[in-house]
């Protein structure tokens, strides 16, 4: 892959906002004792955060930093 790679900060910021939304929903689910839905939120939030973080690390490595 010859071209330079950048980091999609706009998508990452929106992703962080959606994680905040998920935390808000999780609180409601915990209050209503809906543990299954809480696990769904946790899995997706972890997926989003880890994809963003590892994507950033990979981009740094691709750019030779």
């Amino acid at each position: 892959m010859g071209e330079e790679i950048g980091v999609p900060w706009d998508a990452i910021i929106v992703g962080c906002l959606s994680v905040l939304y998920a935390l808000y929903c999780m609180l409601g689910n915990l209050y209503a004792d809906e543990i299954g839905d809480v696990l769904v939120y946790v899995i997706y939030a972890i997926t989003l955060i880890s994809s963003s973080l590892f994507g950033w690390i990979l981009t740094r490595r691709l750019d030779g930093d």
């Binding site: 071209e3 330079e4 790679i5 950048g6 980091v7 999609p8 900060w9 706009d10 998508a11 929106v14």
Partner: peptide, 10 residues
Amino acid sequence: EPFNFSPGLL
């Protein structure tokens, strides 16, 4: 230049 996934990913 660079291919920054932006705003396509969003």
